[in-house]
Amino acid sequence: MSGICDGRVVAVTGAGRGLGRAHALAFAAEGARVVVNDLGVGLDGAPGAESPAEAVVAEIRAAGGEAVVHDGDIATTDGAACLVHTALEAYGRFDTLVSNAGFLRDRMLVNLDEDDWDAVIRVHLKGHFLPLRHAAAHWRAEAKAGRLPQARIVHTSSGAGLLGSVGQGNYSAAKAGIVGLTLVAAAELARYGVQVNAVAPAARTRMTERAFAQAMAAPATGFDAMAPENVSPLVVWLGSAASAGVTGRVFEAEGGRITVMEGWRPGPTADKGTRWTPAEAGERARELLAAAEGPGAVYGAS
């Protein structure tokens, strides 16, 4: 196999199914050696009986590629450190981290209990931070040793994190946090040769079956716009050396569409030069809102 990732070593978390599986296969098809991480848990994070990561590794090897399994919990320090160690032990280098692992525990806010909040924040947000932390430590050491890497990190956010999603307060908060983490990491790690970007994908996976029930079925003929494989080309490019100079950006990807997302920027503003009274502040706020672009609709809002 050869392609834009020839010689690179890539770790993909949550790569046993859905988007992660599609990413792992696409990286391998472009010449990368892949560390396939997956715990094999259910949609809600409960332990599963199978190891889908092994099946993905077998699929990559059958196609002539190279891959190894990592079944550690990347939302723990030991599991995240082991992910980096596995790449280095198997292939002697580590170039790209794609963080994708996650699950859902959807509830309306008044029914959302603390355990469901903590579990979703843990797998998505902590599960992005810890692999980033350990990968960055490795790349910083490489840079300080005079071996500046062409390292890449691709995070997985969501439209729920950018706009909100009814019934997914925990998931939306986690995915919004991933965007903030991406921006900080891009700024802090640039000096070590590391680029950090995020994608907000829309595709047919276990996690989106209920949210996109009307659009899930693959068409009998023609282009399947909801196939997870549609998202992977952008992820592979962001994870390759070919994406040099692109960092701190968020992209939406769905079907054949790629969108550069433009986040919070200053809009209409007013400065009195001294303190407002509450009535003045309210009056001016309404004037500014009238001149501002309205927010996007929250997913699921009536």
Rank of each mutant, 00 (worst) to 15 (best):
G180E: 13
A202T: 13
I4E: 12
L83Q: 05
T76W: 12
P278K: 13
P278F: 14
T208R: 03
R133C: 11
V184F: 05
S157W: 02
S165V: 06
V123P: 07
H138A: 10
V250P: 05
A26G: 03
D271L: 13
A135P: 08
A29R: 15
R257Y: 08
T274D: 15
L130S: 12
L189I: 04
H85G: 07
T221L: 07
Y299K: 10
S243P: 06
G18I: 03
E283G: 13
G31K: 09
S51H: 14
N230Q: 09
A151C: 03
L125H: 01
G102D: 08
G161D: 03
G31W: 11
F103Y: 15
S232M: 08
G92R: 07
V35A: 06
T221M: 09
P201G: 01
G159D: 14
E114Y: 13
G164P: 06
A291F: 03
G300Q: 15
L162D: 08
V260F: 02
H128V: 15
D116P: 03
V110C: 03
V10W: 09
H124Y: 04
V246K: 00
V41Q: 11
L189R: 01
A176D: 04
A244I: 02
G20V: 02
A297M: 08
R105S: 02
I121G: 01
E30S: 08
A253C: 02
R61P: 03
R8V: 00
M226G: 00
E229G: 14
A187Y: 00
A301D: 12
A241H: 02
R257V: 15
S302N: 14
E54T: 08
P47R: 13
F251M: 05
G72Y: 01
N197L: 12
A292G: 04
I178A: 06
W117C: 09
E142H: 07
S240Q: 12
E59I: 13
L25S: 04
S232N: 06
V166P: 02
A187S: 07
G18L: 06
A26C: 11
E66P: 01
S232K: 06
I258Q: 04
K144T: 09
E66K: 10
G282Q: 12
R107H: 10
A253N: 00
I4A: 13
E229S: 14
Y299T: 14
P47M: 10
R191H: 06
G72C: 01
R275W: 11
V199R: 07
I4Q: 15
A137V: 05
S165F: 09
R8A: 05
R21F: 08
E209P: 02
D38G: 13
